[in-house]
Nucleic acid binder design. Structure first.
Lengths: 172, 172
DNA sequence: TACCATGGTTCAATGAATGAACCCAAAGGG
DNA sequence: CCCTTTGGGTTCATTCATTGAACCATGGTA
């Protein structure tokens, strides 16, 4: 890809970020990981992504240091993918983008809304809690269904997110 | 693209946002527009993007309502692309992503830093001015060269950005 | 008139995405 | 002991997008 070749020539932090999370599907994988998705099969079911692409994206995110692949059972061997601290810090960009999409590209209102765990206040597109006056880290946030949620999907992830769910906590 | 097909199935604001600005090069075009790039040739020179791809991306952004194509001279006919208010609101996502890239993917520090025009304070990844305690809109921001800037490019846009430049204001 | 700049379009070759099929190891059931 | 299922992948042919070079059209300019 020319973006890769121009990496140095671009001389721009945004271009470097896009090298890591700018490919098709990648940011949706990250978003799912933020919701607490950890297993290959759950990503697959929730995203409707081709298996080969999912494998490539997970490997690339591990390589880049956004995800950590860890063995959580030996027999049979099972691995899970969880966000690293570097991955946690994608919270603000992901939230800001989703908020922009919700504001300009839907007629039914946002599909999901985010609240500050410690006070329950809804946070804005910059992750700010108006009550506490702080920028809420992903560890202190919760997703709740929003007014625009269609609720037509029936995979385990969609089911879990139909009720409030703490960010990063594993899907059942 | 499957993302397109799954548009409704995804039921997610982030997926909708990525439909508009998630393709390769698109967000870099938007970033350049934020810097004040308006002419086809300037995008071309600054991005090193294939002409066909640039044409397609500009048309798609106009179609989506992020850019406005306007005739600024009749003889010879010349058009320029400028950000709509909807485009201005990509400021936070773009800034947040660039900030993340600068924090995790460069060793030399950020290439460009952003300051609040009215007070001169540097703003953070959430566009916040610590002095004024507000979220700075793009109209009140200025780019300045950062410590990690390589300065090897010599197109008109790179030249213009080697000194402080008000966001959205046209490149000379 | 010849040349040049701007702002594109067209085209062949390459590379990535897609979706279906296949693979494999380990349980679990009978 | 055999058969099936489940999770987590890989392989492969087809389709689609990207790339880079070449071409084109319009309207100045020397």
């Amino acid at each position: 890809m020319a973006l890769g070749k121009n990496y140095d020539a671009q001389d721009c932090s945004l271009a470097k970020a896009l090298e890591v999370i700018g490919e098709r599907w990648t940011l949706l994988v990250v978003r799912d990981a933020m919701y607490g998705v950890r297993r290959y099969g759950d990503f697959l079911a929730h995203l409707d992504i081709p298996r080969a692409v999912l494998s490539q994206r997970l490997a690339a995110l591990v390589e880049a240091g956004v995800l950590d692949k860890r063995r959580y059972r030996d027999s049979p061997p099972r691995d899970e993918y969880i966000l690293t601290p570097m991955g946690h810090e994608l919270w603000l960009p992901v939230l800001a983008l989703a908020e922009w999409g919700g504001r300009h590209l839907t007629s039914t209102g946002p599909r999901r809304v985010f609240h500050h765990l410690t006070c329950g206040t809804r946070i804005d597109g910059a992750a700010r809690c108006a009550t506490c006056g702080v920028q809420v880290p992903i560890e202190e946030a919760e997703v709740r269904p929003g007014p625009g949620l269609a609720g037509t999907r029936d995979d385990p992830v969609s089911e879990a997110l139909r009720t409030p769910h703490r960010m990063l906590h594993p899907i059942p």
